[in-house]
Amino acid sequence: MDKSIKILIVDDFATMRKVIRNILKQIGFENIVEAEDGAIALRSLKSQQIDFIIADWNMPNMTGLELLKAVRTDEELAKIPFLMVTAEALQENVIAAVKAGVSNYIVKPFTAETLNEKIVKILGTD
């Protein structure tokens, strides 16, 4: 697995972005950028090469699901792996995210091991 990939963390809570950033560092990822909501994330995705997206579901302006849909319908961005992070464990949300083309789904609260497992599942172990 290439640990030098650029990961975009999208969450309206600065604390959660820090928590995710810390976990990513623990598991060897250092190339990290952040965005406060889906709209800012989308601008960021247009202006630089991003290899992996970790986005919260519940955000003002543009939710994680709206961001996912925007990414999947944009030719240039469509193939970027997208991991949805959320406190919403409801079945209908999981179905909506899968339908929209999410790569995987992680429910808060989660441990470093769980986040690592999800990333490995998406990127493979090579």
Binding site: A89, L90, K108
Partner: peptide, 9 residues
Amino acid sequence: NMVSGVARK
């Protein structure tokens, strides 16, 4: 948010 999410589940 997280407590609400886990409790609602």
